[in-house]
Design a binder for these strands. Structure first.
Lengths: 138, 138
DNA sequence: TTGCGATTTAGAATCATTCTTGATCTCGGG
DNA sequence: CCCGAGATCAAGAATGATTCTAAATCGCAA
C-alpha cells in the first residue's frame, strides 16, 4: 500500500522509531478524518491488530503528536481528539451533534497585552451549528 | 458585608436558589481572582465552612456557571478553572508557570466557513510566557 | 408555619488517562 | 546477518477529575 510506505517515511523523517502499532494508528488517523478519540482509535485498530492495547494507543498518539504528525484537539472536558490534518486550520464544534470540522484558519486579533507578555500560540475554537444541524432548525 | 449582600442580590436576580454554600463559593471567586480549580475553591471554602463537601463545590460552581455568574475556563487536559470576571475578555496561559491571566478580549477573524455553518462563540486561548516568566529568559 | 422540591453530604462510581512491570521489538554497530 | 542496548509494547493497576446515589436538610412560596 502506498499509504503505508508513505507513513513509514513520515515516521522515519521525524526520527521516531517505527513500529507496527504507530504505523497502524497513523494510518487510521489519515484514513478517516473524523477526529476520533483515543478509544475510538483503539476500537478501529483492534479490528486489524487484535492484540493492541489501549495504553499503546495512548502512547503512540502521544508520540505522534509530540513529533508533529498529529494534532490534539481538546473541547471542554470531553476526551481528547486527534487530527492528522497538518495544514494551518481551526476547529469548529457543533453544539448539537458534537461533530468536529476542520475549517479555514481563523486569525486571532490580539488586544493589548500587559507589557512583558509573549504570545506563542493563539488557538481559536469555533462553536455553533454545522450545516446539517442548522438545517434542522429551519 | 456589602459584598455578601451584593452576592445575594446577584443570585436572586438570576432566580437561583440562595444557599450559604453558593454564596460562599461565589464570594471566594469574586475575592481572589486567580482562576482556581474546584479543589482549590473547596480548600478555601472549608476554612470558613468546614462541613462543605467537594460535591457541593462542584454542584455550586456548575449552578453559578449555568446562570452566567461564573465562567469556566478549560486549558487542555488540566482541571477546569473558574472565573468571576463577567466582562468580555480572553485568557492567557503561561506555559512556564501555569498561571492564567485575564487579558483584553481577542477578536477572532473568521475565515470562510462552509455554507450552513453558524458560529455562536469563538473562544481565543492565548499561550505563551507571562511577564514574570519571560523576564527569566533574558 | 408547612410542605415540596431543590440542595447538601459522604462516599461510591465513572471515565479518561497515566503508570508499572516484565516481555518484546527496533535499529545501529560489528 | 546477528546482537545488544534501549525503546516500545501489553495488561492491568493506579490516579485524578468529575459525576452519581441516597438519605438528610434546607429554601422558599403559599
Amino acid at each position: 500500500m502506498e499509504d503505508d510506505s508513505n507513513i513509514s517515511e513520515l515516521l522515519a523523517a521525524r526520527g521516531i522509531r517505527l513500529t507496527r502499532q504507530r504505523e497502524k494508528i497513523l494510518a487510521i488517523l489519515l484514513q478517516q478524518r473524523d477526529h476520533p478519540t483515543a478509544s475510538e482509535v483503539y476500537e478501529r485498530a483492534k479490528q486489524k491488530m487484535p492484540s493492541i492495547s489501549l495504553a499503546t494507543v495512548y502512547n503512540s498518539l502521544e508520540a505522534l503528536a509530540r513529533n508533529g504528525l498529529l494534532k490534539q484537539v481538546n473541547v471542554d472536558r470531553a476526551p481528547t481528539r486527534f487530527c492528522a490534518n497538518l495544514e494551518d486550520h481551526s476547529h469548529f464544534f457543533c453544539e448539537r451533534c458534537g461533530a468536529i470540522y476542520d475549517v479555514e484558519a481563523a486569525a486571532a486579533q490580539l488586544g493589548n497585552l500587559p507589557p512583558g507578555f509573549v504570545v506563542f500560540h493563539a488557538d481559536v475554537a469555533l462553536k455553533g451549528l454545522c450545516s446539517t444541524c442548522s438545517d434542522l432548525n429551519v
